[in-house]
Each structure stands twice: as structure tokens, then as C-alpha cells.
Amino acid sequence: MRQRYLALLSVFASLPALAMNFQTRLENVEWKVAGDQFECRLGQPVANFGSAEFVRRAGEQAVFRLNSVSHLLGTGSATLLAAAAPWQPGRGDINLGSVRLGHGETLLTSSQSQASGLINGLLEGRMTLIRSQSGSQPVEIRLLSARFGQAFGEYQACAAKLLPMNYDQIRLSDVGFPRGLELDTAAKARLDKLLAFMKADPSVNHVQLDGHSDNSGNRLVNRDLSRRRALAVQDYLLAHGLSESQITLRFHGESYPLVANSNAANRARNRRVSIELSRVEAPPSAAPAADSPAVLATDKPPAKPL
């Protein structure tokens, strides 16, 4: 009898551990859409686990996030699949690769290509499946495609209203002056995006302008050219709604080239104005803002665009 008992234990020990599954019941599945000019989200609560969502920031494509206050997925990585639904016989799962697990409330964030694959799968009626290993026990989270199509339409309508760029993308930028001192069409388009962002987010309320030149002239001439380029950008911003107290202007001549001034193309790249946006709060005891922007000739280098 003892031998038979030990043999049974050996058989059960060799069987794979049953997966811990999390899935909202079909009749309770709900996709929720929320967002504004800066970000759109399309998510589904997962019963007894947390939530999953597609997040699209302005200027970017969507990523997929899984959120939970628990850490049932364990550590390491999880696999993302656009899995065939039980009512889709003959279809195979689409493995979209692995993603590293985090330690905070957001357990994982996919790449943009992985999120695109999951969205396409849901539109085809597939399930989103997240599979991981917590110790010796597999863990699976499933998102059903029920009611996804209508919610995705609302999500697309939200995405159509996103700003062209997000704060990380627009905070540091360069406006080029490849031909002299005039703002060209590309420069004005860049400044228009900056102005649109500041209008949408009034907390971004300060602009620092750093003028630059190539090394074609002498030091004093180059310093003056860099100042005039910064002034050209400032004048455009003032003409389109910014106040003088929101602008700090600096100029550096040829001191901080982007590239070596070794040929005409490189010199054209170095003729530019670097722009840095920021959120500035005046202290309660601060003096009233000056009537004109700060203008500085400085050797302190400007911040570099991302």
C-alpha cells in the first residue's frame, strides 16, 4: 500500500501546476475610454486582479499596461499573446514576445508594436493573454474582446484630438536658420506646435531661447548674429500670444556647435535657436515681472534636445 501511495505522489508531482487565472465574466466585460489632449486610455477592469489598458500619449503610438496592487505575476518577464478565443477553432495564438515585469503598481508596459498586435487581435475577436510564472505556479490574465469594437471607435475619436507632441518631445527643441536670420516655414511650424502646447497646458509658462551661430565671422559678429536669431524667435512668440515676462533670451555666438563647422551643411545646422520650455512658479515675495524679457550674453551652455 505504501509503495502505491508513493507512486501516486510521484505521478502528481510530475504533472504541471494548474494556472492561476484572472478573467472578468463575459457578461460583465466593460471597456472604458478616457482622455484629453495629452493622453487617451482604453482599458478593461480585470476581476479580482486590477486593470489593463492601452495608453496613447500625444505624439506617440499606444502601449499596453497591466496594473495591480498585488504582485501575483512574480518577477522576471511575462509573455503577451493575441490568443484565439474558444469559439475560434482552428486559429492559433499569436505570440507577441515578452515584456519585463515591474515592481510598482504598473506591472508591465509593452512596446508600441506589441500593443498594436494586441489591438489588432481584439478587433479580430481574439483575447489578450498575459502569461507569467509566479514561483512554480503559472499565472494567466485574459481580456475578452466583447464590446471592444465600439469602445475602440471612441478611443480613436479621442486620439484624433491629441496634440502633435507631448511635453517630453517638445520641452527641448531647436529652430534652425539655414539661410540667414529669417524664420522659414519649418521653423514657424515648429513654433506653432510649441505655442499650441503652451495654450493647452498653461502650467508650461516659460520659454528660454538660446541663440547660436556658426564660426564664419569673428567673435563679436557671431555673438550679434546669435542674438538676432533669438530675437526673431522671440518676436514670433510675442506676436502669437506670449508675454515678454515669459521669455528669457540668451546668445552664445559660435561657442556651442551641434556639429563641427567643417562644411557648409554643418555650418547651416549650427545656425539655430535652442528652445527650452519649463513650468515656473513665482515665489510669493517675488517682485512684479519686468516689462521686457531677460536678455543675457552668457557662456553657460543651453540644454540639449532629447
Rank of each mutant, 00 (worst) to 15 (best):
A239Y: 10
L6E: 12
D36L: 06
A287T: 03
P138Q: 13
F152P: 01
V11H: 07
Q156K: 13
L231P: 00
G90I: 09
C158D: 09
R147Y: 13
R272G: 01
D214K: 06
S245N: 14
A189R: 14
Y167R: 14
G117Y: 04
R250N: 15
T106F: 00
L183C: 06
N261A: 07
A268H: 02
R179G: 00
Q156V: 13
M1G: 13
Q137D: 09
H206E: 07
T128E: 06
P302Y: 01
V259K: 12
E39P: 00
V175S: 08
R219F: 09
K304M: 06
L191Y: 03
L181N: 09
L129E: 15
P178I: 07
Q133F: 08
A151N: 10
N120K: 14
S262I: 12
G76S: 06
N205I: 11
L18T: 11
L80K: 06
F64K: 04
A157M: 09
A196T: 09
L66P: 03
S134G: 12
Q208W: 04
T106Q: 11
P89F: 05
I119G: 02
Y5D: 10
N222E: 14
L129G: 01
S14V: 05
Q37E: 13
L144M: 12
L162R: 09
A47H: 13
I247T: 12
W87Q: 13
G97T: 09
L8V: 11
A62W: 01
A196K: 10
Q246P: 07
N48E: 14
V99D: 01
R4V: 10
G217E: 09
S10L: 08
E30Y: 03
I170R: 06
L181W: 01
E154M: 10
G92Q: 15
A17N: 12
N67A: 04
G241N: 10
S243N: 15
F152H: 15
K161A: 14
R179L: 08
L18W: 05
A34V: 08
W87E: 14
P86L: 07
R229D: 04
F22Q: 05
I141F: 10
R272S: 02
E244G: 14
P284D: 04
S292D: 01
R267F: 00
E105G: 07
A47D: 14
V273A: 05
A200E: 08
R229I: 10
L129H: 11
F38C: 02
V11M: 08
F22K: 04
L118E: 07
V175F: 05
A34P: 00
L66H: 02
F197N: 01
G74P: 05
L66K: 02
R171P: 02
R171T: 13
P178D: 08
L237G: 11
A297H: 02
L73Y: 03
F197Q: 02
R229K: 11
L15P: 00
S278E: 03
G59S: 11
Y155W: 15
E154D: 14
S243C: 06
L163R: 11
L183G: 07
L277R: 03
N215V: 02
A303P: 01
L183Q: 05
I119S: 01
D210M: 05
G97A: 08
N120Q: 14
A146V: 12
V55T: 09
F38L: 15
G102Y: 05
S203M: 11
S14E: 09
A282M: 11
T298A: 07
H103R: 13
L209Y: 07
E182D: 13
G97H: 06
N270V: 04
A303W: 00
T248Q: 13
L66W: 02
